[in-house]
Design a binder for these strands. Structure first.
Lengths: 200, 200
DNA sequence: GAAATGTACGAACGATCGTGCTATTTTGTG
DNA sequence: CACAAAATAGCACGATCGTTCGTACATTTC
């Protein structure tokens, strides 16, 4: 009664395709994503899949946006529950931590960042825009924590956002290569030191 | 008189090939490296290039090792000049910083780490071995700095090595997406805070 | 000089790539 | 139920992929 009648057929198949595409891109990156493999995974014909996007690049952009969307729903959205300021910031980090645990085998957003950082084109622009947006959210939350008096008043929001991001990069890197557990402990320890040094 | 026959012909051609391959892999990653494109860049035939390695995977492994070699020559080797301890550790970081500046457009070692973290095979193993080796060098140097009394005696070498690595990941990430200058400033600021907090 | 070895080339292979074009099937509507 | 529209399949294309094979040329060894 859901995938039936009326409009929505197109949108729902598109979502199914993107779901499989996202899974494939997690292990092989957006550059490793091929329409043939994707079609086999979905159980459709190549041309059937292709028709939904018009080009491979459009597909890749759609997958990138799927990643952004899921990241936001998983990390940012539930962190709007706790009150603004440090509690919210710590919730973001905690959710991000869990996201990282679930994405040990590969994260589309991060692999995209390293795949397209040195080129140009629509995908590069998309990655930059997406990363800048997320960094902006971090900075905004940090700014609120400063305003609430939860962080030192001279806190450089961009600087702290950078250091948070760097630690999460370290977590993802070490988790992928050496295992999540030890990487998680190191990251947690580093965060404790980080929070302490920006305490008011 | 150089590219002529006699002994060493094979080795020198191989180096020429690897030189071009390394350059190509910097922008497209090891997975994006194709023998046809490489052959065109070198000015040889596909089969001529292929014969030097026997398989694409062997070529990729050779390029990975080329990267490791160059990194060590550029970052670790010149840092053995200053005395062991904190001076040497800071020299490593400084050289690494310069390496990162020269590799804004893409670093084979880092892209390989994100390309093969979620799979298995010879390349995955090679990346893990290489990364573990480098982390070990870092830890060793940190241990010496502790022994020299340059760092707090309760310093966790693996922890500090992790945090150093995370900052360099942040530098590379931000430099590639947002430009090196600001990323460099943030990284430098973070390092200052880092050194201070492990001071004896 | 003859034979052996090392090196690179050219052609071809089966597979897969992304992308058109044209049927065919499925769907929503009167 | 009929009919238009939308969605998917089928097929073919040129390109490129990694790889194999036979061959040509140069050099070294006998």
């Amino acid at each position: 009664m859901n995938t039936t009648t009326h409009p929505g057929k197109r949108a729902s198949t598109r979502e199914t395709i993107l779901d499989h595409a996202y899974a494939l891109a997690r292990s092989d990156g957006l550059e490793g994503l091929s329409i043939g493999t994707l079609a086999t995974a979905v159980g459709m014909s190549k041309s059937g899949v292709f028709a939904h996007f018009g080009s491979r690049e459009e597909l890749q952009l759609a997958v990138l946006d799927t990643g952004r969307q899921r990241f936001m729903e998983r990390v940012l959205l539930p962190a709007l529950q706790p009150p603004r300021g440090l509690p919210r910031l710590r919730a973001i980090v905690a959710n991000w931590f869990e996201w990282s645990r679930e994405h040990q085998s590969g994260c589309v957003l991060l692999s995209a960042a390293s795949e397209y950082d040195g080129r140009d084109g629509a995908l590069h622009d998309g990655v930059v825009r997406q990363q800048a947006g997320w960094r902006g959210e971090l900075q905004k939350t940090i700014g609120q924590a400063v305003a609430e008096g939860h962080l030192r008043p001279d806190t450089d929001a961009a600087q702290l956002a950078f250091e948070i991001y760097a630690l999460m990069l370290g977590l993802h890197h070490d988790a992928g290569l050496f295992g999540f557990d030890e990487a998680g402990r190191r990251t947690t320890a580093a965060f404790e030191r980080l929070w302490r040094s920006w305490q008011p």
